[in-house]
């Protein structure tokens, strides 16, 4: 193989690498993975999310119950119903957050083990 051909092959290889990196977005500035914050902060964020979801569900349920009570004059029954539904919703929300986190963690582990 001549020197020129080797050079051409080398350039080919580099072009292919660049193109691949470019198309898969390896070389691009990207934050799509959401890994912008460090691991500790992210864990903190997840903990905070779960805590807030629990509160928010209950608050939403209780608030709806309260409003309905005011409107219909059925104090305090709908508040109680709303509170219970709110608890259910809170559990659902927390479950969803945890599930999403689980999925994301798994995807991240897969991505790491692939590399």
């Amino acid at each position: 193989m001549t020197e020129d051909e080797r050079k051409a092959d080398e350039l080919d290889r580099r072009l292919r690498d660049v193109r691949q990196a470019y198309n898969t977005g390896v070389g691009k500035p990207s934050g799509s993975t959401g890994g912008s914050a460090g691991g500790g902060g992210e864990k903190l964020g997840v903990g905070m999310r779960i805590a807030v979801e629990m509160v928010a569900g209950v608050v939403a349920g209780a608030f709806l119950g309260l409003m309905a009570d005011r409107w219909l004059g059925t104090k305090p029954w709908l508040l109680i119903v709303g509170f219970i539904l709110g608890c259910g919703a809170a559990f659902l929300n927390v479950y969803r957050v945890a599930q999403a986190e689980e999925k994301r963690g798994k995807a991240e582990r897969d991505a790491v083990s692939k590399k």
Partner: peptide, 24 residues
């Protein structure tokens, strides 16, 4: 620009390869 540069480089390399082949 990057894509066209890459394409141009590819084309030039292909041309060089063809030329080398012709020369040989």
């Amino acid at each position: 620009k990057i894509q066209s540069d890459l394409d141009a480089a590819q084309k030039a390399n292909d041309a060089a390869r063809v030329a080398a082949e012709a020369q040989r």
